[in-house]
Amino acid sequence: MLRGVFLDMHGTLGYVENPITPVEIAELLVDSGYEVSPQAWRVASHFVGIVDFPKLKFPNEHSYLRHVCFRLGIEIDEETLNRLVELFKRREYYKLYPEAIDAVKTIRELGLKIAIATTIPKFRFKLIIEALSPYIDFVMTGAEAECDKSNPKMYLKLLRILKLTPESVVVVGDEDYVDVILPKKLGMRAIQIIRENGKKCKLADAYVTNLIDAAKIIEKWIREEY
Rank of each mutant, 00 (worst) to 15 (best):
M1Y: 01
R3V: 05
R3K: 15
G4V: 03
F6M: 01
D8S: 12
M9Q: 13
T12D: 08
G14H: 07
Y15A: 02
Y15L: 07
N18R: 14
I20W: 02
P22E: 15
I25R: 11
A26I: 03
L28V: 11
G33E: 15
Y34C: 10
Y34A: 02
E35Y: 06
V36Q: 03
Q39C: 04
Q39T: 09
A40Y: 12
A40K: 10
V43N: 10
A44E: 14
S45C: 14
F53P: 01
L56P: 00
L56C: 10
K57D: 05
F58M: 00
N60A: 01
V68W: 03
E75G: 09
I76M: 09
I76V: 11
D77V: 10
D77I: 05
L84Q: 04
F88S: 05
F88Q: 00
K89A: 11
Y93R: 14
Y94N: 07
K95F: 07
L96C: 06
L96E: 04
Y97S: 07
P98G: 07
E99H: 09
A100G: 06
A103D: 04
A103Q: 07
K105N: 01
I107M: 15
I107Y: 09
R108E: 08
K113A: 11
K113W: 12
A117D: 01
P121S: 03
K122G: 07
F123M: 03
K126R: 11
L127E: 09
I128V: 14
D137R: 04
F138S: 05
F138V: 13
V139R: 03
M140W: 02
M140A: 15
T141F: 06
G142R: 11
G142K: 06
G142I: 10
E144Y: 10
A145L: 11
E146D: 12
C147S: 15
C147W: 03
D148W: 11
D148G: 13
P152E: 07
K153M: 08
L156G: 09
L158T: 02
L164R: 12
V170P: 00
V171Y: 05
V171E: 06
V172P: 07
G173D: 13
D176P: 13
D176G: 07
V178K: 15
D179V: 04
V180H: 00
I181T: 15
I181F: 06
G187Q: 05
A190R: 10
A190D: 10
I191R: 00
Q192D: 12
I193A: 10
I194C: 14
R195C: 04
N197A: 08
N197G: 13
C201K: 05
C201F: 08
A204G: 09
V208A: 00
L211M: 12
L211N: 01
D213H: 08
A214I: 07
A214K: 10
K216W: 00
K216D: 04
I222H: 03
R223G: 05
E224D: 12
E224K: 14
E225T: 11
E225A: 10
